[in-house]
């Protein structure tokens, strides 16, 4: 029998396809990597951050809370880097601010800050509901919403919430600063359009839902295996004076390689009444169009479809309810 050299670190093809994160902890190492960077920089300005990134010429990486990034490096999914550039001490970036009708979230703002921010509770409720269920409290205390967006997971809860709110992302690099639509930041599972080795995601923003709009988020988890949602969904509903839906956004994931915007369902709802019959039509439209799949040890395609059937109408109803009232009480945060 010929000797068969053993391929180590073989990346197993998972039934999950592109939505599952594999963590091939090296058998030889039997452990996570404990040296993930050599230098740790905490610049005091955006310019300084860009200078450091330029200085390292691709060998540095922007770190937010690091709760996802460091695990990926430790588990060998991403390479260790020469330097980390941590923008969390840049003045202003750890705050939520208002800019005309936008709510602006600095890149150092943690999930805990989002969840407890009164303006976001009222005018971006689905973001509070989505940020409130990520990880545990210790992780939410450190992890940033910008980091969640930067990670570009197809079912990153914060990203799903922000996508429903039609969020935007501001990027700074040597060319300056510019806003881009949130969706444009996602290329694929774990693949961000923003080069975190050379540019800095500085801020996120979305239009406050205000008096005539409301939003809601929910997700379904299982108690076993990886702490990724079986499915997450969020909606923003804008009503006319006569309770007709004038605008709506529905985001969900995992459905495809990036957070999914359910445009066919949005079309079905727009211009119609905000009522259960319409919501059921929206469900049908989602099921007809969303690229749902089976992920091994996480959820079957059928289960995901069923959760959309049972939960999307609830999310739409809750968003509608919030559009009609000036207050919103987030549901499920901390669970």
């Amino acid at each position: 029998m010929p000797s068969v050299p053993v391929a180590r670190n073989e990346h197993r093809a998972s039934g999950a396809g592109f939505t599952e994160c594999e963590s091939p902890v090296n058998y030889k190492r039997n452990a996570v990597i404990r040296i993930c960077w050599n230098k740790y920089h905490s610049p005091r300005s955006i310019d300084e951050a860009i200078e450091w990134l330029t200085h390292y010429d691709g060998r540095a990486q922007v770190i937010g809370g690091g709760t996802d990034l460091l695990l990926e490096i430790q588990q060998g999914l991403k390479p260790a880097v020469e330097a980390m550039v941590d923008p969390c001490r840049i003045a202003g970036l750890n705050q939520v601010t208002i800019d005309e009708d936008y709510i602006v979230i600095g890149c150092a703002v943690t999930h805990t800050q989002v969840v407890s921010d009164k303006r976001i509770i009222r005018d971006g409720t689905c973001l509070v509901e989505s940020c409130g269920v990520i990880g545990g409290p210790q992780v939410r205390n450190v992890a940033t919403l910008a980091g969640n967006v930067a990670h570009a997971l197809p079912a990153g809860d914060g990203s799903i919430g922000l996508l429903a709110l039609n969020g935007e992302v501001e990027v700074a690099d040597t060319c300056g600063r510019r806003w881009m639509p949130l969706q444009a930041a996602f290329l694929g599972p774990g693949k961000s359009a923003i080069d975190h080795h050379r540019s800095l995601l500085t801020r996120l923003r979305f239009r406050a839902t205000g008096a005539s709009a409301g939003s809601a988020f929910t997700r379904v988890m299982r108690p076993q295996g990886v702490a990724l949602p079986m499915i997450s969904m969020a909606a923003r509903v804008q009503l006319d004076a006569d309770n007709t839906i004038s605008a709506v956004r529905i985001a969900l994931g995992p459905a495809g390689p990036v957070p999914y915007l359910a445009e066919p369902a949005m079309e079905v709802l727009t211009g119609g009444p905000a009522e259960p019959g319409q919501f059921d039509k929206a469900v049908k439209a989602v099921l007809a169009s969303a690229p749902l799949r089976t992920s091994k040890y996480r959820a079957t395609r059928e289960y995901r479809a069923e959760m959309i059937r049972t939960h999307l109408p609830l999310v739409l109803a809750r968003a509608t309810e919030r559009a009609c009232s000036s207050d919103a009480v987030p549901v499920g945060a901390g669970q």
């Binding site: 996570v32 740790y40 905490s42 450190v142």
Partner: peptide
């Protein structure tokens, strides 16, 4: 060492964090 079990929790400025994945220079 995976930010999973939470038993390494300490308080940083009064806030609980998992110290096993918290960069010291943070």
């Amino acid at each position: 060492n995976e930010a999973e079990c939470g038993i390494c929790t300490v308080l940083v400025n009064g806030t609980p964090v998992v110290s096993c994945t918290y960069p010291a220079f943070k």
